[in-house]
Design a binder for these strands. Structure first.
Ligand SMILES: NC(=O)c1ccc[n+]([C@@H]2O[C@H](COP(=O)([O-])OP(=O)(O)OC[C@H]3O[C@@H](n4cnc5c(N)ncnc54)[C@H](O)[C@@H]3O)[C@@H](O)[C@H]2O)c1
Ligand SMILES: NC(=O)c1ccc[n+]([C@@H]2O[C@H](COP(=O)([O-])OP(=O)(O)OC[C@H]3O[C@@H](n4cnc5c(N)ncnc54)[C@H](O)[C@@H]3O)[C@@H](O)[C@H]2O)c1
Lengths: 207, 207
DNA sequence: GATGTAATGTTATATTAATAACAATGTTTA
DNA sequence: TAAACATTGTTATTAATATAACATTACATC
């Protein structure tokens, strides 16, 4: 009953692009226009619209404002989702800083570390807590998503700990593959692998 | 003729895991052992082995050292591939710093920016050049892959510029979707989209 | 009002990837 | 040596995703 993963990804991208269009004063957009802005195809756009049950003004294209709202209905929760960053090193700091200032329904409300130098301080605009306080703060701050940017050798233990504290989703930037229970939605991004894949296809000159 | 993308990704992960195994003194590994370390299945491992044409010691498992080398044959080039980071902000610095110290066949040999404060200095251990010098340095330093971490509003122009200078692969961390000619292998990772996807599946409680 | 057209919504097909099925092979043990 | 077993390599099936095909709609124009 839920949308395909790839469609959800595209909806997120559609929305961001549509917000730009709205700011430029556009009120409607054709499937092929949106497709061109995102380097995919008009058919794909229309198919995604169909899957989410959104229907156009016949012959006028899709109403941008309404579409943005419809995507929001699917992706956002009314109060927003609170996010924690675990491990405030170089990457964790970059991510935390990046999200500050972006007003969205995803708010980084806390960071966690074990380095006493960092605990208690504001890091990239967000308070850093001891990881020991995580279970308590999950409840207090209504945290539902954790971004994992700790050293890879600790990733598994920390992920298990975090998951057992009631988190619903994890974004793992560590190179250590995780194994989560089914009630925790896990998304992994392995930067090294991603680059090595590029290397492979560059080497085997796919073009 | 070339391997499926997903297989290439897994090969990279296999190799990293296998290196750990080798360090622990293991010489052979069964498909189900490797699978368990990576939370995928033995069948998937064997199928990948088949696709890359690697064959086991019957009943003894796969020879780890040889397998690592075989994966290297596919992914690495003998001299290694040189990489540039374009846009040395928070994310670019984190990535550059991360790759320093990792000895691998992927070397970040230069960074580029337009901020005069940064140009000419060492940033995260690598010299920062003016983007204007990029076409020249691509040749001098044999750069074949660019990591794009510039502000999204400039991403398209810079990507076009970089591609026209002879780069073979681009890793785009910008939220701006790119459109590259077929001889440039493009990999995009959109962190916002990735998180919004988690939000969607958390909200729709897939577990 | 018929005709052409530009766009949509939906069904059908093709591609890609994951999973399952299973025969073949070597190993151990009786 | 035969039977039981563990493990592999490969082929077959299923699932997920993207692409294509096409009938339908609304409107413009003659
Ligand atoms: N920096 C990058 O661009 C990059 C690229 C690819 C992968 N990664 C991965 O991201 C992770 C973080 O990378 P980084 O460069 O930020 O590393 P880092 O060393 O700068 O940061 C790690 C942080 O985690 C903290 N930490 C250590 N143990 C902890 C624990 N038990 N609980 C909570 N916090 C703990 C450390 O105090 C430190 O602040 C690593 O797993 C790395 O493999 C990073
Ligand atoms: N920081 C993150 O964790 C994060 C997360 C998601 C996406 N991103 C994306 O990554 C990109 C970089 O993010 P950041 O947080 O590092 O931003 P940042 O502002 O810290 O860094 C941007 C850098 O690009 C340089 N720059 C600007 N114009 C340039 C040009 N024309 N040529 C070369 N360099 C130029 C700036 O001088 C600066 O050093 C952005 O597109 C952002 O959307 C970052």
């Amino acid at each position: 009953m839920s949308l395909p993963e790839k469609t959800v990804e595209r909806l997120s991208e559609y929305r961001r692009t549509l917000l730009d269009c709205l700011n430029q004063g556009k009120s409607h957009i054709f499937s092929h226009e949106l497709a061109a802005l995102l380097h995919n195809t008009a058919v794909q756009v229309r198919r995604d619209m169909m899957l989410m049950g959104f229907t156009s003004m016949q012959r006028k294209g899709y109403a941008i404002k309404e579409l943005i709202e419809a995507i929001g209905e699917l992706i956002d929760t009314s109060e927003g989702l609170n996010v924690a960053v675990i491990g405030v090193g170089n990457l964790g700091r970059a991510i935390t800083g990046y999200f500050q200032g972006k007003r969205s329904k995803l708010n980084i409300v806390a960071t966690f570390d074990i380095d006493p130098e960092k605990i208690g301080r504001m890091i990239a605009g967000v308070k850093c807590y001891s990881l020991d306080d995580f279970p308590k703060l999950v409840g207090d701050l209504q945290i539902s998503i954790a971004i994992l940017t700790v050293p890879p050798e600790h990733a598994r233990n920390i992920a298990d700990f975090v998951a057992s504290s009631g988190i619903k989703g994890i974004q793992n930037f560590t190179t250590a593959p995780l194994n989560m229970p089914p009630h925790v939605y896990l998304e992994e991004y392995d930067m090294i692998t991603s680059l090595e894949k590029i290397a492979y296809f560059v080497k085997n000159h796919q073009g």
